[in-house]
Computed example of a mutant assay.
Amino acid sequence: MIQFILQLPLWQIIRSFGIVSFILLTAGVCLGILYSFPFWKGITKANMYKLHMYATIAGTGIGFVHGIITVIDPYMPFAWSEVFIPFTAANNPILNGLGTLALFGMLIVILTTDLRNKLKKTLWHAIHMLSYPIFALAWVHGYFLGTDTTSASVRWMYLLCAAAVLLLTAYRLMQGQMNSGRAAGAAEG
């Protein structure tokens, strides 16, 4: 069994899992932003939340496996400590450390979401907003460390994912300001 595993194209699997993880995390973040728009109602909003959770948890899980497989990779093996202790990797410690921090951050966001009924809403919301810097950490890790970013299509994938999150965030902020303006106008009138 071990021999079979070691004969798999582990380096390609690691790279593929990293890309799939990032795409799912991007989908999770984008769906989370979309979910926060006030015009979604009922079953549509409930389904969007389910997709948001599925993409986020699946992306985090695949990202976890992406890191774990590096321990058995014969091409560039990592020690367990290099995988789980940020900035200790012999190869590219900063960029690998950012990936480790992104994983830990996502685990915290997921765990606190599961516990949100036991947390103050402001605390849960503050932790959940860490999804933005966590996404940025994952982006930097993948874009600058990923060996596939020499490919134009992979480089564009990272850039389009970042653009989607930035555009949705900007639109959501504008939506919030418009709603605040309407509420202030209604209070004055």
Rank of each mutant, 00 (worst) to 15 (best):
Met1Arg: 02
Met1Cys: 07
Met1Val: 15
Ile2Val: 12
Gln3Ser: 13
Gln7Val: 02
Ile14Asn: 00
Ile19Asp: 10
Phe22Val: 06
Ile23Lys: 05
Leu24Cys: 11
Leu24Ile: 04
Gly28Val: 01
Leu31Gly: 04
Gly32Val: 08
Ile33Lys: 04
Leu34Asp: 00
Leu34Thr: 05
Tyr35Asn: 11
Ser36Pro: 07
Pro38Met: 07
Phe39Gly: 04
Gly42Asp: 06
Asn47Lys: 15
Met48Thr: 09
Tyr49Leu: 15
Lys50Pro: 12
Leu51Asn: 14
Tyr54Glu: 07
Thr56Gln: 10
Ile57Asn: 11
Ala58Trp: 13
Gly59Glu: 04
Gly63Trp: 08
Phe64His: 04
Val65Glu: 02
His66Ala: 05
His66Glu: 03
Gly67Gln: 10
Ile68His: 03
Ile69Arg: 06
Ile69Tyr: 02
Ile69Ser: 14
Thr70Asp: 05
Val71Pro: 02
Pro74Arg: 06
Met76Tyr: 08
Met76Ala: 11
Phe78Asn: 07
Ala79Trp: 12
Ala79Thr: 14
Ala79Asn: 07
Ser81Asp: 01
Ala89Gln: 05
Ala89Lys: 05
Ala90Gln: 13
Asn91Gln: 12
Asn91Ile: 14
Asn92Tyr: 09
Asn92Leu: 13
Ile94Gln: 03
Ile94Asn: 01
Gly97Gln: 05
Leu103His: 10
Leu103Asn: 03
Met106Asp: 07
Val109Ile: 14
Val109Tyr: 08
Ile110Thr: 01
Leu111Ser: 11
Leu111Pro: 00
Thr112Glu: 08
Asp114Lys: 15
Leu115Thr: 04
Leu119Ile: 09
Leu119Phe: 12
Lys121Tyr: 07
Trp124Gln: 05
Trp124Leu: 08
Ala126Gly: 09
His128Trp: 00
His128Ala: 09
Leu130Tyr: 13
Leu130Lys: 04
Tyr132Ser: 03
Ile134Asp: 02
Ala136Pro: 08
Leu137Ala: 12
Ala138Arg: 00
Trp139Arg: 05
His141Tyr: 07
Gly146Trp: 00
Gly146Cys: 06
Asp148Asn: 11
Asp148Phe: 04
Asp148Arg: 09
Thr149Pro: 08
Thr150Phe: 13
Thr150Pro: 11
Val154Tyr: 05
Met157Arg: 00
Met157Lys: 02
Leu159Phe: 12
Cys161Phe: 01
Ala162Arg: 05
Ala164Arg: 01
Val165Ile: 14
Val165Cys: 06
Val165Thr: 03
Val165Ala: 04
Val165Asp: 06
Ala170Asn: 10
Arg172Asn: 15
Met174Asn: 13
Gln175Met: 13
Gln177Cys: 08
Asn179Ile: 10
Gly181Asp: 11
Ala183Met: 12
Ala184His: 03
Gly189Thr: 08
